[in-house]
Design a protein around this nucleic acid. Structure first.
Lengths: 144, 144
DNA sequence: ATACAAGTTAAAGTGAACTTGAGATCAAGA
DNA sequence: TCTTGATCTCAAGTTCACTTTAACTTGTAT
């Protein structure tokens, strides 16, 4: 039972490809010690960190946002349960907002498309707040 | 009250950039008639089609999937309400699945991160089904 | 000692959904 | 008529989250 693991083992145990782990490290989301050869050695705790990253992605956070969250963890000591749970404070609200939007969209399925009023002027189904200031793919704005 | 609208007007009324509309047209999601000059003229009904696209994107469909849906509309006549609502059949289930996943993730916030068991071996919070066969960004697989 | 698996880097490629830029043409009001 | 704003095409650029490739170096089992 070693204290450190290789990148291959971390990949196997987390289900995240080694190339992705190197990428995360480059982005500062995880870190490793290096042996003389240059090979990475991760502490076991990296698995929890990776789990957190995957988890947060499913919720909808970008890697930048996840990085900001992880940066809040104490650098001087191993994170405790309460450290981790503090990170996720506020996520519940975010999840709730997304769930509410989906529920609204679902209602629109019958109410709006069903009744034939589907029109951008009248129905404002797509959430303006979420869309404004959004980057990346998808229509960038919503004119009221 | 004209029967056709310019791309600029369609953009203004839908909140979707003109460049995006041209892109959608290139992808076959919408279509236009051209005047002698080459300028596009859209029928008013394009607004509903655009609304449908935006709507579907919010639910999580890719443009390819949306195109496949739109292809089911009758080509010979103007789509009716029931044509549109038929398209969205099955979406409710999809929305429900996503909502269920988010609810699960939210539960995990307290149950898993809170209790300190956050680990990829033990907690299987991220939905394997949804992740498998997924394309694009994000970890590609989930080793069970 | 020799395979061969596993690790390293840097740079380039991928796919989705658009946007931006360049250079040219078109339409509409003063 | 002039000028201003809208539109056109085509190619290239952008962001995100990675993956792939190439050319090497290490670690380990036999």
């Amino acid at each position: 039972m070693e204290k450190v693991i290789t990148i291959g083992e971390a990949a196997r145990r987390s289900g995240v490809a080694a190339s992705a782990l190197r990428f995360y490290e480059e982005r500062g989301l995880i870190s490793s010690e290096r042996r003389g050869s240059g090979h990475r050695r991760y502490p076991r705790s990296v698995l929890r960190r990776i789990a957190f990253i995957v988890f947060a992605q499913r919720i909808g956070l970008s890697l930048d946002e996840i990085g900001a969250e992880l940066a809040k963890l104490p650098a001087d000591r191993a994170p405790t349960r309460s450290d981790w749970s503090q990170l996720s404070r506020g996520w519940a609200a975010r999840i709730d907002r997304r769930i509410a939007e989906l529920a609204r969209l679902k209602a629109g399925l019958t109410e709006c498309i069903g009744c034939g009023c589907l029109s951008l002027d009248r129905c404002r189904l797509a959430n303006p707040e979420d869309r404004a200031g959004r980057h990346g793919p998808g229509p960038r704005y919503w004119v009221g």
